[in-house]
């Protein structure tokens, strides 16, 4: 099964750039990436730019409404994702637990529908 691992972060709880804690976190990310690659489960992933770069839109009464900012006003925002392919949820959770942001934020794991429009 394919799973998307969504990383929700509170930027204020994350270690600051330039601190040893930040370096340790990046090291853990690197290790998680290498492990997923070595196990041949990694199918994709990215980090997202900060929420100050987010633009949202919705269509109301046939008109496109564009808004500055992310979808919902919460403390934890989607900061990045992985797509992995594994046998079951237990395996997916094992990889999710390798992601260092689990210590500062929340990692959500959801199965994909296998409906890739990009083919």
């Amino acid at each position: 099964m394919k799973y998307m691992i969504l990383i929700y972060n509170d930027a204020t709880k994350e270690p600051a750039f330039g601190t040893p804690e930040f370096d340790a976190m990046m090291g853990d990310y690197f290790a998680a990436n290498e492990k997923m690659k070595a196990d041949d489960v990694l199918r994709g992933g990215e980090g997202l730019q900060g929420i100050d770069t987010a633009t949202s839109l919705r269509i109301t009464g046939g008109k496109v409404e564009t808004m500055d900012g992310p979808f919902a006003e919460t403390r934890e925002y989607l900061g990045g994702y992985y797509v992995i392919e594994v046998d079951d949820l237990d395996k997916a959770l094992e990889y999710a637990a390798l992601i260092p942001s689990a210590k500062f934020g929340t990692i959500e794991v959801r199965p994909l529908m296998n409906f890739d429009p990009a083919g």
Binding site: D88, L89, D90, A92
Partner: peptide, 14 residues
């Protein structure tokens, strides 16, 4: 079924 919860006995570390 949808989440892919396996029908297994957990491994030792779990």
């Amino acid at each position: 079924a949808a989440k892919g919860i396996p029908f297994v006995v957990p491994e030792v570390d779990q």
